[in-house]
Design a protein around this nucleic acid. Structure first.
Lengths: 210, 210, 210, 210
DNA sequence: AATGAATGAGTCTTCATTCAT
DNA sequence: AATGAATGAAGACTCATTCAT
């Protein structure tokens, strides 16, 4: 099963060595260091210096590979979205039963990899700057539409199977908002909401479909 | 009817005059300028200079009255929460019918004063820094518990009235998460969600109670 | 007689005191520190830090008063041009005899205040960036046209007085180019050219008019 | 198309290949790229990256061949001076008539190859850093003395031929300053001075010798 | 010889804060 | 109480140079 946040290891070496790797590998490492830094310091607490320290590389490397901090952040959000997409779609195809698919979808939102304060605060951090960044906005919108399509498809299959007359689109928007709201609450106050509880609330919200 | 964002007036004075007013009045003005600035520039885009410009006062006044930018932000969030609380509670007492009360509660979340991109982005801005600020966290937690209590009470009254056997607390958490998720979505992509649509989704979620 | 480069004194105080002066006074001081720094370090050797050190103020003050280093440089060149204009025009009006006026004009180009390596290198420094800066270009062009007009007027008066048939404009352009070339040579290799020698060459070039 | 018998020519490959050429060839290429870059970006706008891009080689090559950027610049100025010297002397020997020689000398300063904004700004760029670089200073001084000698010789021959009593050295210094001043003016404001006009001014300045 | 990834010192700029007036 | 000049720490970015490949 796919593990979402690849947030790997610490720098390890004291950076004394001038290790030389493929640009793509370096970029991945820096993107990873970025998301880890957001989790650690908060979105507004990240600096080039901190990210590079987290990645165990020198300060100049971000500009070398990304040109600017903004571009790194953009790429990081893109990667985050891509990972989530791959993760959410993962295993959906095999499921013949739409009910299973819907349950699977919901469950993924609340498994350990996703539903933990660190990960959720990464999302929250990006969300807060989306309104001011057209590029991030575009990425977010695409992600939303993709997710919406997935939920809507599943729900339509379910409705058809059970001969229910529902507005699959509206229900999907509601379910996604519910999930987002639970993520948000968990990011703001992890104590107030367990993964089990959150998952149950979602499943209950679509109980009439299952 | 209560108007939430008191976003009132322009500097008014010719700015050349060193107008000397009551500290409390100045504080209110600065807090107001702060929320307006967040709406305009985004949370990470606010600076002392911009806030003071928005308030039509000089750069030194914030530290004079609040001691620090952080304290101003804290007071601003407190004011935002207080306003919301007063607003949400407003008119609740008069309602004998719990169904009316619940509908009123929900409606307030999506009226013009609240459910507009500017206002929602103010909330989003504060949310993003809550995980890193214990003081903001505390305020937010209190607000959440208060809101939760209100919803729970109403739901319990409803359940009793209609002899329904529900978990009022769980339902309240779910409803609040749904509302928060809809706010978030509207903040991220105002085009994707109308107030009418959002309100309908919430009312539908509690349809079994009404 | 006007003293061109007001290049005054060193910081004097250890900057421990937070001296507070009128913005205009501060701006003058910073502009003065700028030209002195160009003389000392060369145009490409000036930094915000060096200029502020030369002015005995903190690093942030330039941006406070000028907004950017570029703007400071622009203002500095403007001041340099204005000073030169005032200086060159100074005393011209009183001279009834155009021959005296021309001699005076020439002499000013080679008196101690102007014709010294430090001062000439300031001009050279600015010249080198004029081709890349439209704003500096504009200032320079205006200065050139003004100077040209002055020389041309004097020469026309001279020609009229002596009933000579000359192209005053062409002669003026040539004289100005000769002066500029001598300035340049003195800036590049002060040893190779004395003020006396340079002055004599110019006077010789217009001997037929005097 | 028939394949030409490979005459072991330089590949001129599609740039993807790591073409390996004689060091001297590479140096020439880099020096050429340097002057072109100064013309394009201005002296203060040149970077190792830009120069290498202009030369179509990788970033590391300058330090590989020249050791430092400063050394490259020094070599570039040397080359510029050498070219000028060869160019100015070129054809001088054949001229029996010193008047022709002087006219030729002057004309070369204002032909298309030299008297164009790009070329003149290259000179201006170097001039601006000469005061701060002893090595460049030395090169410049040598060039000046050489040029001076040439002009002086020609003028002495002319004076002898026409039995004129002139200070050939002083006249040469003046002529060179006039030329330099015209170059400078054309570099600062190309619109203000045509080659024809500039040439005429110089010829007029030595009319008494011709 | 050639490449370009990596480094880190240097620079401009931003901005919260201080404080003389 | 109010102003805004002054400070200086912190940040992003530039860029010559180094060096593994």
């Amino acid at each position: 099963m796919a593990r979402m946040p690849s947030s790997s290891q610490a720098p390890a070496s004291p950076a004394a060595v001038r290790s030389r790797v493929q640009p793509e590998v370096r970029k991945r490492l820096l993107i990873d260091a970025t998301t880890r830094s957001i989790a650690q310091y908060g979105y507004s607490g990240i600096t080039i210096e901190r990210i590079c320290a987290a990645g165990g590389v020198s300060r100049g490397l971000i500009n070398h590979h990304f040109g600017s901090k903004d571009e790194l952040l953009l790429q990081s959000y893109k990667t985050l979205c891509d990972h989530w997409t791959a993760y959410a779609l993962d295993g959906m195809k095999d499921m013949a039963d739409p009910a299973d698919a819907l349950r699977s979808c919901i469950n993924k939102n609340f498994d350990e990899a996703m539903f933990n304060p660190q990960q959720l605060r990464i999302w929250l951090g990006f969300w807060s700057v989306i309104p001011k960044s057209p590029k991030l906005q575009k990425l977010d919108r695409a992600l939303y539409q993709l997710d919406l399509k997935i939920y809507q498809d599943v729900m339509e299959r379910l409705a058809h199977q059970k001969s229910l007359d529902i507005d699959a689109r509206a229900q999907s928007i509601a379910l996604m908002a519910l999930i987002a709201g639970l993520w948000l609450q968990a990011a703001l106050d992890p104590q107030s909401l367990s993964a089990t509880q959150a998952r149950a609330l979602c499943l209950n919200a679509v109980a009439h479909l299952l």
